[in-house]
Design a protein around this nucleic acid. Structure first.
Length: 289
DNA sequence: AGTATCCTGGAA
DNA sequence: TTCCAGGATACT
C-alpha cells in the first residue's frame, strides 16, 4: 500500500517535474474527491512539495496549497503531452528497469486533472476513490485533522528515544501501534509486517512488553525496511506507481507481507497469516517471539 | 479495543 | 455470486 516510501517517491517525482509549472485550469470529474475552493489554484505556480507521513502538500506561490492523501489506490501522474516520449526518465532511486504500468490517461479512474503550462498535465487517478484532495491556505495545512494529529515519523522527528517511549507507554499490540498514524507517521501494513519479521518480534505482542533490546531492534528494522522500500522506489501492490506511471520494486523484496505459506527468510518456517486489528498480518510463529 | 464505512477489481 | 483487501475515521 502507499506508505512512507511510496509517498516519498511520489514527492520526489513531483518536486522534480511539477515545481515551476503554472496551473492553468482544473478539471474535476468526480466532485467528492476535491474539497475547498478549487478555483484558487488557477494561475498559481507550484513552489514545492512536502510530505508528512503518507500525506502530500503541493505549495503554490499564492498562499494556497493542495493537500493530497492517496490512501490505497490514488495515483498522481505527470505527463507532458507535447513532448516526444523518450525513454522514461528514471527516478533517482530506481535502479532496476521500471516499466510503464498506467497505459492510456485519462482513464475511467481519472477524477481530477490539473492542466499546466507547457502542455503538461497532472492527473489524479483513484480506483477506489478513498483518497482526497483539499485546497487550503498554506498556513492552514497544519490545521487539517490528518496533519494535525500525525505522530512523529522515521527519518524526521522520530528518534530511538522517542520511539522507545511511544512503545513503552502503549496499551495496544505492537503491530497496530506501528501503523497508528497518530502515534507514528508513515508506516502501514507492508512495512509493519516486514519490520517485525526482520526484528523477530511477534506482531501480537503487547507493545509495552517489549524489552529495551527488542525496541532497539525494532526501531532499526523499521528504518531498514523503509530504506529498502525507498531504494526500490516503493512497492507496487494495488495501484501504486510513481509520477511517471512506473512501478516500484519493493514487492520483490517482501520478507513477510503477502507471503503466507512461504518460507521465513530467517528460519525457513512457513509463514502464517492472521488478522490483527482488522488487518492481514503475516509472520513466522517460530522466530518471531 | 474491535468493527463498520467508503469503493472496486480480482479471487474464491 | 459472494467475499475480501485496505488507510483513516466514525462508530459501538
Amino acid at each position: 500500500m502507499p506508505e512512507l516510501p511510496e509517498v516519498e517517491t511520489i514527492r520526489l517525482g513531483l518536486q522534480k517535474y511539477l515545481v515551476g509549472h503554472t496551473i492553468k485550469d482544473v478539471e474535476v470529474r468526480l466532485a467528492k474527491m476535491v474539497q475547498g475552493e478549487v478555483q484558487k489554484v488557477k494561475g498559481a505556480k507550484v513552489e514545492g512539495v512536502r510530505r508528512f507521513g503518507k500525506g502530500l502538500v503541493i505549495d503554490l506561490d499564492n498562499g494556497y496549497s493542495i493537500a493530497v492523501h492517496i490512501k490505497l489506490t490514488g495515483q498522481l501522474i505527470y505527463r507532458r503531452s507535447r513532448v516526444a516520449r523518450v525513454s522514461p526518465i528514471r527516478q533517482a532511486q530506481g535502479k532496476q528497469v521500471s516499466r510503464e504500468k498506467v497505459g492510456t490517461i485519462p482513464n475511467k479512474w481519472t477524477h481530477v486533472i490539473f492542466k499546466l503550462d507547457r502542455g503538461a498535465n497532472l492527473y489524479y487517478n483513484d480506483l477506489r476513490q478513498f483518497g482526497w484532495i483539499k485546497i487550503v491556505k498554506t498556513d492552514e495545512v497544519g490545521n487539517l485533522p490528518f496533519f494535525k494529529e500525525l505522530g512523529p515519523e522515521f527519518f524526521k522527528d522520530l528518534n530511538l528515544e522517542k520511539f522507545m517511549k511511544i512503545v513503552s507507554s502503549s496499551k495496544t499490540s505492537i503491530k497496530p501501534l506501528l501503523m497508528d498514524q497518530k502515534k507514528i507517521g508513515g508506516v502501514g501494513n507492508i512495512y509493519a509486517n516486514d519490520a517485525l519479521n526482520v526484528a523477530k518480534i511477534d506482531p501480537r505482542r503487547k507493545a509495552s512488553s517489549l524489552s529495551k533490546d527488542e525496541k532497539i531492534r525494532l526501531f532499526h528494522a523499521v528504518e531498514k525496511v523503509l530504506k529498502k522500500g525507498l531504494e526500490a522506489g516503493g512497492a507496487s501492490e494495488l495501484s501504486y506507481v510513481n509520477v511517471l506511471g512506473q512501478e516500484g520494486g519493493y514487492q520483490n523484496h517482501f520478507v513477510a507481507y503477502g507471503r503466507e505459506g512461504k518460507p521465513c527468510k530467517n528460519c525457513k518456517t512457513l509463514l502464517k497469516k492472521i488478522k490483527l486489528g482488522g488487518r492481514g498480518t503475516y509472520f513466522c510463529d517460530k522466530c518471531q517471539k
